[in-house]
Design a binder for these strands. Structure first.
Length: 198
DNA sequence: AGGATGATCGTCT
DNA sequence: GACGATCATCCTC
């Protein structure tokens, strides 16, 4: 699986959310490699009240305001981590939340990190995929195109006809905007899977 | 220094 | 479907 190169991903946040579908998230944990195919994302835009960057840069969201295609990782509810890919040019705070992966490599390692989980639930949900791939705040700021430990690999981008769009999950502000993207019919997608074509 | 909030998850009914 | 865990973060005093 070839690593994604500079220029292969868009910077604009909505385009990035779509372009990430079908790509692979690869993680090296010690000598072990785990990987998953992205099947669900959500875009958090500039000027979007639901985006962490809306209020301007803070220590927590610094990487969101850095260059695009870096890992923005934060902890939520004291219990889970969420993995995002920063978007837009340096100085602008926007990004894409990766909500679900289809496990591809290292299912056994992921199962050890999430004991008792079924394979279907291993990476179904933003907190679950972080647990399964040992992604935490120590990986915040990693350049996903050039750094080691956590990176993105090329995979076949999704055909437009296989992309579905719907409202984002779990937010209170700007809750009705259709900025959640997922692969039609994929059982690893979290949340509602009955929605409309773009 | 203290309080409210949250891009979730697992468990229970 | 509903609820509690659990704590980093941010805002207000």
């Amino acid at each position: 699986l070839r690593r994604l190169e500079a220029g292969e991903l868009p910077e604009e946040t909505r385009a990035l959310a779509r372009a990430l579908l079908g790509r692979y998230v690869i993680r090296q944990i010690g000598s072990e490699i785990v990987a998953g195919r992205i099947v669900e994302t959500e875009a958090y835009l500039l000027g979007d009240p639901a985006c962490h960057g809306f209020i301007g840069p803070t220590p927590r969201t610094a990487t969101l305001f850095g260059p695009p295609h870096h890992a923005y990782v934060y902890q939520i509810y004291g219990t889970s981590f969420c993995f995002n890919v920063s978007g837009e040019a340096e100085g602008d705070g926007a990004g894409v939340l990766v909500r679900a992966l289809e496990p591809v490599i290292g299912d056994d390692v992921m199962l050890q990190l999430r004991p008792g989980s079924s394979r279907a639930d291993l990476c179904r949900g933003p907190g679950r995929l972080c647990a399964a791939m040992a992604i935490d705040r120590s990986l915040d700021g990693v350049d996903l195109l050039t750094d080691s430990g956590l990176w993105l690999s090329a995979g076949r981008p999704l055909r437009p006809s296989r992309v579905r769009v719907g409202p984002r999950i779990g937010i209170t502000r700007a809750a009705s905007r259709p900025l959640r993207y997922y692969e039609a019919g994929n059982p690893h997608v979290s949340g509602p899977r009955k929605s409309i074509r773009p």
